[in-house]
């Protein structure tokens, strides 16, 4: 175990983050009028801050056992996944849930493609997405009566 592992800088940062979250939550629950309703949140916040402080002190003293595990994979693909999902969610206001979901599906399909594109895959994979999205569209809209967002400027034929 290296000296960096014993200090566990990542864990210390996480501890500071949790103390920050605890401070914000403590301030937030102070506006709750009922004193009984404040007991449980403050007990949990207190424990979280106390254990975070213990973690930071332990790490500073060099007794850390880092929980960090190196991760493989492409950061570009991860960022792409987030961008596609966030953009798709905000686009739902204008182009409706179904079309936005279909576009997100196609974008993520392209991002998650590790194999070579063959003519069969070019047809089957997007087709599977269309079937899945439209299938869920009909189930949620028709069967569960969930009001999925509609496009603003046009109407879907189904």
């Amino acid at each position: 175990m290296t000296d960096e592992d014993r200090k566990d800088l990542r864990g210390t940062l996480g501890g500071v983050l949790f103390i920050g979250i605890g401070a914000v939550c403590w301030w937030d629950v102070s506006s709750v009028p009922s004193p009984q309703a404040v007991v449980f949140p403050r007990a949990v916040i207190g424990l979280m801050v106390a254990f975070s402080a213990i973690l930071i002190v332990r790490n500073l003293l060099g007794f850390a056992t880092s929980e960090y595990t190196p991760q493989s994979g492409s950061m570009l693909r991860r960022v792409g996944l987030l961008v596609a999902m966030i953009a798709g969610t905000f686009a739902m206001h204008w182009i409706g849930f179904t079309i936005a979901a279909l576009l997100v599906y196609l974008a993520l399909m392209a991002l998650a493609m590790y194999e070579r594109w063959t003519p069969t895959r070019c047809i089957v994979y997007p087709l599977a997405g269309v079937v899945l999205v439209l299938g869920f569209h009909f189930i949620f809209k028709g069967l569960f009566q969930v009001p999925l967002p509609e496009p603003r400027w046009f109407t879907l034929p189904f």
């Binding site: 996944l81 999902m85 798709g88 969610t89 739902m92 206001h93 849930f97 979901a101 997100v104 599906y105 196609l106 974008a107 993520l108 399909m109 392209a110 991002l111 998650a112 493609m113 590790y114 194999e115 895959r121 994979y125 599977a128 997405g129 899945l132 999205v133 869920f136 949620f140 569960f144 969930v146 009001p147 999925l148 967002p149």
Partner: peptide, 24 residues
């Protein structure tokens, strides 16, 4: 294939989260 699994899971999380309170 991951190219089908990843977008399918992402789509289901989106529609599942939306359907709880019909809120984006």
């Amino acid at each position: 294939p991951k190219a089908v699994l990843v977008p399918a899971v992402a789509f289901m999380t989106m529609i599942g989260a939306f359907a709880i309170r019909n809120s984006l």
